[in-house]
Computed example of a mutant assay.
Amino acid sequence: MPTRPPHYRCLADDIEQKFRSDEYLPGQQLPSVSEIGELYNVARSTAYRAVKELHERNLIYGQQGQGVFVADS
Rank of each mutant, 00 (worst) to 15 (best):
T3P: 10
R4F: 15
R4S: 12
P5W: 05
P5R: 02
P6E: 04
H7W: 07
L11V: 05
L11G: 00
A12S: 11
A12E: 03
D13N: 04
D13W: 06
D13C: 02
D13L: 08
I15Y: 11
I15D: 02
I15N: 01
E16D: 11
K18L: 13
F19K: 02
R20W: 11
S21D: 11
D22S: 14
D22A: 14
D22P: 02
Y24R: 02
P26D: 02
G27V: 07
Q29R: 10
P31N: 00
P31T: 00
S32D: 00
S34P: 00
S34Y: 13
E35L: 04
E35S: 03
E35A: 11
I36K: 02
I36N: 00
I36F: 15
I36R: 00
G37L: 08
E38L: 14
L39P: 01
N41G: 15
V42R: 04
V42L: 06
S45Y: 12
T46V: 14
A47T: 05
Y48L: 07
R49C: 13
A50Y: 14
V51E: 05
K52T: 09
K52C: 10
L54A: 11
L54G: 13
E56I: 08
E56C: 07
E56L: 14
R57K: 08
N58L: 11
N58K: 14
N58C: 12
Y61V: 05
Y61I: 05
Q63N: 04
Q63E: 13
Q64D: 08
Q64M: 09
Q64P: 07
G65F: 13
Q66K: 15
G67R: 00
G67W: 09
G67T: 04
V68E: 03
V70A: 13
A71V: 07
A71E: 12
D72Y: 15
D72M: 09
D72T: 10
S73P: 10
